[in-house]
């Protein structure tokens, strides 16, 4: 009896030790992961709040928090307020136009059956691999001819074309999951195809459209390559180009304080959006592969 009891006890302790070990590994994993994810963001935030005297210290929080870097970002020659305005205009215009176009295409590809449907889908998907660097020279020439250099549309239009392939693909996967029987029902009740789409389907599609729209917005907000060529002056520079143009006191010294402060300004809206729409973004990411 004692032997059996002893073995049983030993078994449970072993099992308990197993789970304790497992949860220890999971706990350590979470700590390391959260550190890796948040450390760069935290260091950016902390550095942005340190004055010139303190910035070189490796303290993990600002001893004497100051907004001097933020004043430098928005004042003087940097005038980052313009860049924020430009980026908002460009990203919103891109998102609105791309979504309207993508909703039409996504509907056609998900709902209608026609010859060449999969071929179109494959072509669209193939276009999402396009390297921006491959078409930046022709775009620069075309936009020079059209007088578009330093204008918003020189960034909005390429952003749309880069966002469209993946937007169409993600929307198509979302639209395929829709309860299309409801559209049939609306048709039976006397709605035309357009009426049925706008009254029944579009409201149900809002989550997918919002998700895709967020991803397009992020992509437009982060675009650097094309903008660095077609946007010359502060009047049209988006945040990415403006940030890269910040000048230091000397040629070889980077203005890290103001770069970090501008980085916070650029990143915080995205972080807020991500946390607000976490579930939507997760489903959109796994549906189409935005980065």
């Amino acid at each position: 009896m004692t032997a059996v009891g002893g073995r049983a006890r030993a078994g449970t302790t072993a099992a308990r030790r197993g789970t304790a070990w497992e949860s220890w590994v999971i706990g350590a994993g979470i700590v390391l992961l959260v550190l890796y994810c948040l450390a760069p963001f935290w260091w950016m935030l902390v550095s942005s709040l340190k004055g010139p005297a303190e910035i070189a210290s490796n303290r993990l929080w600002p001893e004497d928090p100051t907004l001097v870097n933020y004043r430098g970002v928005f004042g003087g020659q940097n005038d980052f307020g313009y860049a924020v305005r430009n980026s908002v205009v460009i990203a919103v215009a891109t998102t609105a136009s791309a979504m309207v176009i993508a909703v039409f295409s996504g509907y056609a590809l998900a709902r209608l059956r026609f010859r060449g449907r999969n071929l179109v889908l494959a072509l669209v998907l193939a276009c999402s691999m396009f390297p921006g660097v491959a078409i930046v020279t022709p775009l620069y020439q075309m936009f020079s001819d059209w007088g578009w250099i330093d204008q918003y549309q020189a960034m909005v239009v390429p952003n749309i074309s880069f966002a469209l392939p993946l937007a169409i693909f993600v929307l198509t996967t979302f639209f395929r999951e829709m309860p299309w029987e409801l559209e049939e029902a609306a048709r039976v009740d006397g709605c035309g195809p357009i009426g049925a789409f706008f009254r029944v389907i579009l409201p149900l599609a809002v989550p997918g459209v919002v998700t895709t729209g967020l991803l397009v917005f992020f992509a437009a907000w982060n675009e650097y390559l094309i903008s660095s060529v077609v946007s010359i002056t502060l009047a049209s520079n988006p945040v990415t180009v403006a940030l890269a143009k910040f000048a230091g006191d000397t040629e070889f010294q980077q203005p890290f304080g103001s770069q970090m402060a501008a980085g916070v300004v650029v990143t915080v809206p995205l972080v807020v959006l991500v946390l607000l729409f976490q579930r939507r973004i997760v489903s959109g990411l796994s549906a189409g592969g935005f980065r």
Binding site: L33, C37, W43, V239, Q254, G263, L275
Partner: peptide
């Protein structure tokens, strides 16, 4: 944890590079 992971994703490439 997904929230933290997405913060890493949300950091714009240009900003992240400077950090």
């Amino acid at each position: 944890v997904i929230g933290c992971v997405l913060v890493a994703w949300a950091m714009p490439a240009v900003t992240g590079t400077y950090v």
